[in-house]
Design a binder for these strands. Structure first.
Lengths: 193, 193
DNA sequence: GTCTATATAGAGATAGAC
DNA sequence: GTCTATCTCTATATAGAC
Protein backbone atom coordinates (compact mmCIF):
# COMPACT_ATOMS: atom_id res chain seq x y z
CA UNK A 1 0.00 0.00 0.00
CA UNK A 2 1.09 3.55 -0.66
CA UNK A 3 0.97 4.70 2.92
CA UNK A 4 3.08 1.73 3.86
CA UNK A 5 5.98 2.80 1.66
CA UNK A 6 5.78 6.31 3.02
CA UNK A 7 5.90 5.00 6.55
CA UNK A 8 8.84 2.74 5.81
CA UNK A 9 10.74 5.65 4.32
CA UNK A 10 10.12 7.68 7.46
CA UNK A 11 11.22 4.85 9.72
CA UNK A 12 14.36 4.20 7.70
CA UNK A 13 15.20 7.91 7.67
CA UNK A 14 14.74 8.24 11.41
CA UNK A 15 17.01 5.31 12.12
CA UNK A 16 19.75 6.31 9.68
CA UNK A 17 19.71 9.97 10.73
CA UNK A 18 20.07 8.89 14.35
CA UNK A 19 23.12 6.78 13.58
CA UNK A 20 24.88 8.73 10.84
CA UNK A 21 23.41 12.18 10.97
CA UNK A 22 21.53 14.10 8.31
CA UNK A 23 24.34 15.08 5.94
CA UNK A 24 25.97 11.68 6.29
CA UNK A 25 22.89 9.81 5.09
CA UNK A 26 22.10 9.63 1.40
CA UNK A 27 18.63 9.38 -0.05
CA UNK A 28 19.69 6.27 -1.95
CA UNK A 29 20.60 4.65 1.33
CA UNK A 30 17.21 5.56 2.74
CA UNK A 31 15.25 4.09 -0.15
CA UNK A 32 17.34 0.93 -0.01
CA UNK A 33 16.87 0.53 3.74
CA UNK A 34 13.16 1.26 3.41
CA UNK A 35 12.74 -1.22 0.57
CA UNK A 36 11.32 1.52 -1.62
CA UNK A 37 12.18 2.33 -5.24
CA UNK A 38 14.10 5.53 -5.85
CA UNK A 39 11.26 7.37 -7.51
CA UNK A 40 8.76 6.91 -4.72
CA UNK A 41 10.82 9.13 -2.45
CA UNK A 42 10.08 12.25 -4.47
CA UNK A 43 6.53 11.11 -4.95
CA UNK A 44 5.86 11.06 -1.22
CA UNK A 45 8.26 13.85 -0.32
CA UNK A 46 8.25 16.36 -3.19
CA UNK A 47 10.17 18.75 -0.96
CA UNK A 48 13.15 16.40 -1.16
CA UNK A 49 15.59 15.67 1.61
CA UNK A 50 14.61 18.62 3.75
CA UNK A 51 10.93 17.69 3.83
CA UNK A 52 11.78 14.07 4.55
CA UNK A 53 14.13 15.21 7.30
CA UNK A 54 11.57 17.44 8.95
CA UNK A 55 8.93 14.71 8.89
CA UNK A 56 11.34 12.07 10.17
CA UNK A 57 12.29 14.34 13.07
CA UNK A 58 8.66 14.94 13.98
CA UNK A 59 7.98 11.21 13.63
CA UNK A 60 10.78 10.19 15.99
CA UNK A 61 9.91 13.01 18.32
CA UNK A 62 6.30 11.95 18.69
CA UNK A 63 7.27 8.34 19.30
CA UNK A 64 9.68 9.29 22.06
CA UNK A 65 7.18 11.66 23.59
CA UNK A 66 4.84 8.72 24.03
CA UNK A 67 7.70 6.83 25.65
CA UNK A 68 8.27 9.76 28.01
CA UNK A 69 4.62 9.84 28.95
CA UNK A 70 4.47 6.09 29.40
CA UNK A 71 7.45 6.17 31.73
CA UNK A 72 5.96 9.01 33.76
CA UNK A 73 2.41 7.71 33.72
CA UNK A 74 2.88 6.00 37.05
CA UNK A 75 5.07 8.89 38.22
CA UNK A 76 2.76 10.41 40.80
CA UNK A 77 4.06 7.79 43.19
CA UNK A 78 7.78 7.80 42.60
CA UNK A 79 8.93 10.30 40.02
CA UNK A 80 12.58 9.84 40.94
CA UNK A 81 12.40 6.17 40.10
CA UNK A 82 10.78 7.06 36.79
CA UNK A 83 13.74 9.27 35.92
CA UNK A 84 16.09 6.44 36.76
CA UNK A 85 14.03 4.11 34.59
CA UNK A 86 14.23 6.51 31.71
CA UNK A 87 18.00 6.72 31.83
CA UNK A 88 18.09 2.95 32.09
CA UNK A 89 16.06 2.63 28.89
CA UNK A 90 18.81 4.49 27.10
CA UNK A 91 21.54 2.39 28.71
CA UNK A 92 19.83 -0.75 27.47
CA UNK A 93 19.19 0.64 24.01
CA UNK A 94 22.80 1.72 23.54
CA UNK A 95 24.21 -1.59 24.70
CA UNK A 96 21.80 -3.69 22.70
CA UNK A 97 22.37 -1.72 19.50
CA UNK A 98 26.16 -1.57 19.72
CA UNK A 99 26.14 2.14 20.66
CA UNK A 100 24.01 3.16 17.69
CA UNK A 101 20.63 3.79 19.29
CA UNK A 102 21.07 7.11 21.10
CA UNK A 103 18.85 10.18 20.88
CA UNK A 104 16.97 10.28 17.54
CA UNK A 105 17.12 14.07 17.43
CA UNK A 106 20.36 15.33 18.96
CA UNK A 107 22.71 14.38 16.11
CA UNK A 108 20.60 16.09 13.49
CA UNK A 109 19.85 19.01 15.81
CA UNK A 110 23.54 19.84 16.14
CA UNK A 111 24.18 19.45 12.43
CA UNK A 112 21.35 21.65 11.23
CA UNK A 113 21.31 24.31 13.96
CA UNK A 114 23.28 26.63 11.70
CA UNK A 115 22.46 25.22 8.28
CA UNK A 116 18.71 24.68 7.92
CA UNK A 117 16.12 26.79 9.66
CA UNK A 118 13.17 24.45 8.91
CA UNK A 119 15.02 21.44 10.32
CA UNK A 120 16.30 23.36 13.32
CA UNK A 121 12.75 24.40 14.05
CA UNK A 122 11.49 20.83 13.81
CA UNK A 123 14.13 19.72 16.32
CA UNK A 124 13.31 22.59 18.67
CA UNK A 125 9.65 21.61 18.67
CA UNK A 126 10.51 18.03 19.56
CA UNK A 127 12.69 19.10 22.46
CA UNK A 128 9.92 21.41 23.67
CA UNK A 129 7.41 18.57 23.61
CA UNK A 130 9.75 16.33 25.61
CA UNK A 131 10.38 19.04 28.15
CA UNK A 132 6.65 19.58 28.52
CA UNK A 133 6.02 15.87 29.09
CA UNK A 134 8.80 15.78 31.64
CA UNK A 135 7.48 18.89 33.37
CA UNK A 136 3.99 17.39 33.62
CA UNK A 137 5.49 14.39 35.39
CA UNK A 138 7.38 16.55 37.86
CA UNK A 139 4.38 18.79 38.47
CA UNK A 140 2.30 15.68 39.09
CA UNK A 141 4.73 14.78 41.86
CA UNK A 142 3.97 18.02 43.63
CA UNK A 143 6.63 20.38 42.30
CA UNK A 144 5.28 23.87 41.47
CA UNK A 145 4.69 24.17 37.71
CA UNK A 146 7.23 26.91 37.11
CA UNK A 147 9.97 25.04 38.95
CA UNK A 148 8.91 21.79 37.27
CA UNK A 149 9.51 23.41 33.87
CA UNK A 150 13.01 24.47 34.89
CA UNK A 151 13.89 21.07 36.29
CA UNK A 152 12.55 19.40 33.15
CA UNK A 153 14.93 21.48 31.04
CA UNK A 154 17.78 20.62 33.35
CA UNK A 155 17.02 16.90 33.38
CA UNK A 156 16.64 16.76 29.61
CA UNK A 157 19.95 18.56 29.15
CA UNK A 158 21.72 16.17 31.49
CA UNK A 159 20.12 13.21 29.72
CA UNK A 160 21.10 14.38 26.24
CA UNK A 161 24.64 15.19 27.28
CA UNK A 162 25.07 11.85 29.00
CA UNK A 163 24.02 10.10 25.79
CA UNK A 164 26.63 12.08 23.85
CA UNK A 165 29.33 11.01 26.30
CA UNK A 166 28.25 7.37 26.58
CA UNK A 167 27.85 6.90 22.87
CA UNK A 168 31.23 8.47 22.17
CA UNK A 169 33.13 6.58 24.85
CA UNK A 170 31.32 3.26 24.32
CA UNK A 171 30.69 3.15 28.04
CA UNK A 172 27.42 3.53 29.90
CA UNK A 173 29.24 5.08 32.84
CA UNK A 174 28.22 8.66 31.99
CA UNK A 175 24.55 7.70 31.74
CA UNK A 176 24.61 5.73 34.98
CA UNK A 177 26.40 8.42 36.98
CA UNK A 178 24.31 11.24 35.55
CA UNK A 179 21.12 9.32 36.29
CA UNK A 180 22.04 9.01 39.97
CA UNK A 181 23.04 12.65 40.43
CA UNK A 182 19.96 13.92 38.60
CA UNK A 183 17.75 11.59 40.62
CA UNK A 184 19.24 12.90 43.87
CA UNK A 185 18.84 16.50 42.72
CA UNK A 186 15.19 15.98 41.81
CA UNK A 187 14.41 14.17 45.04
CA UNK A 188 15.63 17.19 46.99
CA UNK A 189 13.07 19.31 45.14
CA UNK A 190 10.07 17.14 45.97
CA UNK A 191 7.68 18.45 48.60
CA UNK A 192 8.27 16.78 51.99
CA UNK A 193 6.30 13.55 52.03
CA UNK B 1 55.21 29.49 5.59
CA UNK B 2 54.31 25.83 5.35
CA UNK B 3 53.34 25.38 8.96
CA UNK B 4 51.13 28.40 8.66
CA UNK B 5 48.99 26.88 5.95
CA UNK B 6 48.69 23.66 7.89
CA UNK B 7 47.57 25.60 10.95
CA UNK B 8 45.03 27.60 8.98
CA UNK B 9 43.58 24.41 7.53
CA UNK B 10 43.20 22.99 11.04
CA UNK B 11 41.55 26.15 12.34
CA UNK B 12 39.16 26.33 9.39
CA UNK B 13 38.28 22.65 9.78
CA UNK B 14 37.62 23.02 13.50
CA UNK B 15 35.31 25.96 12.98
CA UNK B 16 33.39 24.46 10.05
CA UNK B 17 33.01 21.06 11.71
CA UNK B 18 31.64 22.75 14.82
CA UNK B 19 29.01 24.61 12.81
CA UNK B 20 28.09 22.15 10.07
CA UNK B 21 29.38 18.83 11.26
CA UNK B 22 31.88 16.49 9.64
CA UNK B 23 29.88 15.05 6.77
CA UNK B 24 28.31 18.42 6.02
CA UNK B 25 31.64 20.11 5.46
CA UNK B 26 33.49 19.65 2.18
CA UNK B 27 37.25 19.70 1.79
CA UNK B 28 36.87 22.38 -0.87
CA UNK B 29 35.06 24.55 1.63
CA UNK B 30 37.86 24.03 4.13
CA UNK B 31 40.64 25.01 1.74
CA UNK B 32 38.67 28.09 0.68
CA UNK B 33 38.01 29.16 4.25
CA UNK B 34 41.64 28.50 5.16
CA UNK B 35 42.94 30.43 2.18
CA UNK B 36 44.90 27.40 1.04
CA UNK B 37 45.13 25.94 -2.45
CA UNK B 38 43.42 22.63 -3.04
CA UNK B 39 46.58 20.59 -3.42
CA UNK B 40 48.13 21.61 -0.14
CA UNK B 41 45.44 19.78 1.78
CA UNK B 42 46.65 16.38 0.66
CA UNK B 43 50.22 17.51 1.05
CA UNK B 44 49.76 18.26 4.76
CA UNK B 45 47.11 15.59 5.38
CA UNK B 46 47.93 12.62 3.15
CA UNK B 47 45.38 10.61 5.13
CA UNK B 48 42.64 12.79 3.63
CA UNK B 49 39.50 13.93 5.37
CA UNK B 50 39.72 11.44 8.21
CA UNK B 51 43.24 12.49 9.19
CA UNK B 52 42.31 16.15 8.96
CA UNK B 53 39.21 15.46 11.05
CA UNK B 54 41.12 13.63 13.77
CA UNK B 55 43.73 16.37 14.01
CA UNK B 56 41.12 19.12 14.01
CA UNK B 57 39.30 17.38 16.86
CA UNK B 58 42.48 17.06 18.90
CA UNK B 59 43.34 20.67 18.11
CA UNK B 60 39.99 22.02 19.33
CA UNK B 61 40.05 19.67 22.27
CA UNK B 62 43.42 20.89 23.50
CA UNK B 63 42.42 24.52 23.15
CA UNK B 64 39.28 24.00 25.21
CA UNK B 65 41.15 22.00 27.79
CA UNK B 66 43.33 25.05 28.38
CA UNK B 67 40.17 27.11 28.71
CA UNK B 68 38.85 24.63 31.29
CA UNK B 69 42.06 24.82 33.25
CA UNK B 70 42.16 28.59 33.07
CA UNK B 71 38.62 28.82 34.38
CA UNK B 72 39.37 26.42 37.22
CA UNK B 73 42.82 27.81 38.02
CA UNK B 74 41.41 30.07 40.69
CA UNK B 75 38.92 27.39 41.68
CA UNK B 76 40.33 26.43 45.04
CA UNK B 77 38.46 29.37 46.43
CA UNK B 78 35.06 29.11 44.80
CA UNK B 79 34.67 26.16 42.50
CA UNK B 80 30.94 26.67 42.18
CA UNK B 81 31.43 30.15 40.80
CA UNK B 82 33.94 28.72 38.33
CA UNK B 83 31.31 26.34 37.04
CA UNK B 84 28.88 29.21 36.65
CA UNK B 85 31.57 31.17 34.78
CA UNK B 86 32.16 28.29 32.44
CA UNK B 87 28.50 28.01 31.49
CA UNK B 88 28.45 31.77 31.04
CA UNK B 89 31.34 31.56 28.57
CA UNK B 90 29.19 29.35 26.40
CA UNK B 91 26.17 31.63 26.75
CA UNK B 92 28.24 34.56 25.53
CA UNK B 93 29.85 32.59 22.71
CA UNK B 94 26.50 31.35 21.40
CA UNK B 95 24.89 34.78 21.50
CA UNK B 96 27.84 36.55 19.96
CA UNK B 97 28.18 34.03 17.13
CA UNK B 98 24.51 33.82 16.26
CA UNK B 99 24.16 30.34 17.80
CA UNK B 100 27.04 28.87 15.80
CA UNK B 101 29.77 28.62 18.41
CA UNK B 102 28.75 25.66 20.57
CA UNK B 103 30.84 22.67 21.54
CA UNK B 104 33.60 22.03 18.99
CA UNK B 105 33.40 18.27 19.51
CA UNK B 106 29.83 17.22 20.20
CA UNK B 107 28.45 17.59 16.68
CA UNK B 108 31.20 15.50 15.14
CA UNK B 109 31.14 13.06 18.05
CA UNK B 110 27.50 12.20 17.43
CA UNK B 111 27.98 11.90 13.68
CA UNK B 112 30.98 9.60 13.78
CA UNK B 113 30.15 7.48 16.84
CA UNK B 114 28.88 4.75 14.55
CA UNK B 115 30.70 5.54 11.32
CA UNK B 116 34.42 6.10 11.98
CA UNK B 117 36.30 4.41 14.75
CA UNK B 118 39.40 6.66 14.50
CA UNK B 119 37.31 9.82 14.74
CA UNK B 120 35.16 8.44 17.54
CA UNK B 121 38.31 7.63 19.45
CA UNK B 122 39.67 11.14 18.95
CA UNK B 123 36.44 12.59 20.34
CA UNK B 124 36.46 10.21 23.30
CA UNK B 125 39.99 11.28 24.20
CA UNK B 126 38.98 14.93 24.15
CA UNK B 127 36.02 14.32 26.42
CA UNK B 128 38.24 12.34 28.78
CA UNK B 129 40.75 15.20 28.96
CA UNK B 130 38.00 17.68 29.76
CA UNK B 131 36.57 15.43 32.44
CA UNK B 132 40.01 15.08 33.98
CA UNK B 133 40.53 18.84 34.04
CA UNK B 134 37.13 19.30 35.61
CA UNK B 135 37.79 16.59 38.17
CA UNK B 136 41.10 18.21 39.17
CA UNK B 137 39.22 21.43 39.87
CA UNK B 138 36.62 19.67 42.01
CA UNK B 139 39.26 17.66 43.86
CA UNK B 140 41.13 20.89 44.49
CA UNK B 141 38.04 22.19 46.22
CA UNK B 142 38.14 19.33 48.68
CA UNK B 143 35.93 16.69 47.06
CA UNK B 144 37.37 13.16 47.29
CA UNK B 145 39.04 12.22 43.98
CA UNK B 146 36.71 9.35 43.15
CA UNK B 147 33.61 11.44 43.75
CA UNK B 148 35.20 14.37 41.91
CA UNK B 149 35.58 12.17 38.82
CA UNK B 150 31.92 11.21 38.95
CA UNK B 151 30.75 14.78 39.40
CA UNK B 152 33.00 15.90 36.56
CA UNK B 153 31.29 13.42 34.25
CA UNK B 154 27.90 14.59 35.43
CA UNK B 155 28.73 18.28 35.02
CA UNK B 156 30.20 17.78 31.56
CA UNK B 157 27.13 15.82 30.48
CA UNK B 158 24.81 18.56 31.73
CA UNK B 159 26.95 21.19 30.03
CA UNK B 160 27.00 19.40 26.68
CA UNK B 161 23.29 18.69 26.76
CA UNK B 162 22.47 22.28 27.66
CA UNK B 163 24.46 23.47 24.64
CA UNK B 164 22.48 21.10 22.41
CA UNK B 165 19.21 22.51 23.71
CA UNK B 166 20.25 26.17 23.67
CA UNK B 167 21.74 26.00 20.22
CA UNK B 168 18.67 24.23 18.84
CA UNK B 169 16.12 26.52 20.47
CA UNK B 170 18.10 29.74 19.92
CA UNK B 171 17.59 30.53 23.57
CA UNK B 172 20.17 30.56 26.35
CA UNK B 173 17.52 29.51 28.85
CA UNK B 174 18.64 25.85 28.97
CA UNK B 175 22.25 26.85 29.66
CA UNK B 176 21.30 29.35 32.34
CA UNK B 177 18.93 27.01 34.17
CA UNK B 178 21.26 24.03 33.93
CA UNK B 179 24.15 26.15 35.23
CA UNK B 180 22.19 27.06 38.35
CA UNK B 181 21.00 23.55 39.14
CA UNK B 182 24.45 22.04 38.55
CA UNK B 183 26.04 24.75 40.69
CA UNK B 184 23.63 23.99 43.52
CA UNK B 185 24.24 20.26 43.20
CA UNK B 186 28.01 20.70 43.31
CA UNK B 187 27.86 23.08 46.27
CA UNK B 188 26.04 20.41 48.26
CA UNK B 189 28.97 18.06 47.66
CA UNK B 190 31.64 20.42 48.94
CA UNK B 191 33.12 19.68 52.35
CA UNK B 192 31.61 21.87 55.04
CA UNK B 193 33.58 25.13 55.09
C1' DG C 1 0.29 7.21 -9.91
C1' DT C 2 4.51 4.34 -9.81
C1' DC C 3 9.06 3.65 -10.89
C1' DT C 4 13.38 3.52 -14.23
C1' DA C 5 16.79 6.09 -16.32
C1' DT C 6 19.24 10.16 -16.45
C1' DA C 7 20.87 15.03 -15.59
C1' DT C 8 23.79 17.97 -13.07
C1' DA C 9 26.56 19.33 -9.41
C1' DG C 10 29.74 18.40 -5.92
C1' DA C 11 32.21 15.24 -3.17
C1' DG C 12 36.94 13.04 -2.09
C1' DA C 13 41.09 11.80 -4.15
C1' DT C 14 45.12 11.75 -7.56
C1' DA C 15 48.44 12.76 -11.40
C1' DG C 16 51.64 15.43 -13.17
C1' DA C 17 53.33 20.38 -14.48
C1' DC C 18 56.43 23.58 -12.60
C1' DG D 1 57.89 20.31 -2.67
C1' DT D 2 53.92 23.17 -4.18
C1' DC D 3 49.84 23.71 -6.64
C1' DT D 4 46.68 23.14 -10.98
C1' DA D 5 43.84 20.35 -13.56
C1' DT D 6 41.32 16.35 -13.72
C1' DC D 7 39.26 11.71 -12.48
C1' DT D 8 35.86 8.98 -10.50
C1' DC D 9 32.19 8.33 -7.60
C1' DT D 10 28.08 9.55 -5.33
C1' DA D 11 24.95 13.04 -4.03
C1' DT D 12 20.31 15.33 -4.94
C1' DA D 13 16.99 16.11 -8.17
C1' DT D 14 14.15 15.51 -12.47
C1' DA D 15 12.01 13.70 -16.83
C1' DG D 16 9.37 10.77 -18.90
C1' DA D 17 8.09 5.62 -19.84
C1' DC D 18 4.56 2.59 -18.38
Amino acid sequence: MANDTRQRLLEASAQLFREQGYAGTGLKQITTAGGAPWGSLYHFFPGGKEQLGAEAIAHSGARYERLFELTFARGGEDIVQCVRDFFQLSVDALEKSGWADGCPIATVAMEVASTSEPLRHACAEVFASWEAAFARGLAGAGIPPERAAELATYALAAFEGAIVLSRTTHDTRALRITAEVVATTLRAELPAA
